[in-house]
């Protein structure tokens, strides 16, 4: 009993912080979104979102961009994770540092870098112009491409690290065996490594999708006001129009939407894990 009391005492500041700083505010939001001014349950705020084409378009854009970003992260991330797992320890360390650096840099700083690269007179539009692909003074800012590029840069480390954790545990002798049996390198990658790495791909996708659906600083700076996403709309509603119940209702939709996509996916991953 005494031991339990010691443990409780040690964890007490943590409990207090969790209650006051996290659970109560989050619960408050969930309640605020489904109650009217008198505290009676209502779906007014939710249905206002779900019946307005403007907001439905925002929701659709959020889902679409998040899916594209997740797919890009898988395609770009799997080879990197494989090279990191099979390369030397030194190469692995430097690659981890390279992908952690943007992850640990402030989102405003990273986004600023993209604004310089993609804006009018930036390196990328100028190169495209030199290649004769676009007109002069072309700008990639305020486009969905810009949002996808900026978000993929930050989110793909999450994908790489989750795949890396799984690939590191794959017995290299399995690959060798498949090669001895006559597989080409790429075939053994596709038939042996990829299927075994699926749990990592799923875990990474969950993380990347959730994060990309809830980012708003990068989309609002790179996409601008013409391309609002759900998280950006929550921020606008909360700070510009100060309509907190409606902002709360949009938050509920974000959480429920993410959960609805996550739960089947998590089931899938449990099955993949056996």
């Amino acid at each position: 009993m005494n031991k339990l009391r010691t443990d409780l005492l040690i964890a007490a500041p943590g409990f207090l912080l969790l209650m006051v700083g996290f659970l109560i505010p989050v619960a408050g939001i969930l309640l605020l979104g489904v109650r009217d001014a008198n505290g009676v349950l209502t779906a007014t705020h939710l249905s206002r979102f779900l019946t307005d084409p403007f907001y439905l378009e925002i929701a659709w854009r959020t889902v679409k961009l998040s899916l594209i970003i997740t797919a890009l992260c898988i395609v770009a991330g799997f080879p990197l994770a494989y090279i990191m797992a099979r390369g030397s320890a030194r190469l692995r360390l430097w690659l981890i540092i390279s992908i952690t650096l943007p992850l640990m840099t402030s989102v405003v700083v990273r986004t600023f870098g993209w604004m310089v690269l993609l804006g009018r007179g930036g390196l990328i539009p100028d190169t495209l112009n030199m290649l004769g692909l676009v007109r002069r003074n072309y700008s990639l800012m305020q486009t969905e491409t810009a949002v996808v590029l900026g978000m993929t840069q930050v989110l793909f480390p999450f994908m790489v690290l989750s795949i890396l954790g799984v690939v590191m545990r794959i017995d290299i002798r399995l690959e060798e065996a498949s090669r001895v049996m006559g597989c080409t390198f790429l075939k053994s990658l596709r038939l042996v490594v990829l299927p075994l790495a699926i749990p990592g791909v799923i875990a990474g996708s969950l993380l990347v999708f959730t994060l990309s659906a809830s980012y708003f600083i990068t989309p609002s700076l790179l996409g601008g006001a013409r391309l609002p996403v759900l998280a950006g709309s929550i921020y606008e509603t909360a700070t510009r129009t100060l309509d907190w119940p409606f902002a709360a209702a949009q938050s509920i939709i974000l959480v429920v939407g993410v959960l609805m996509l996550l739960i089947p996916y998590a089931r899938l991953s449990r099955r993949a894990n056996g």
Partner: peptide, 9 residues
């Protein structure tokens, strides 16, 4: 949990 929701809360 998306940080934006916690921040708004």
């Amino acid at each position: 949990l998306p940080t934006i929701i916690f921040a708004l809360g």
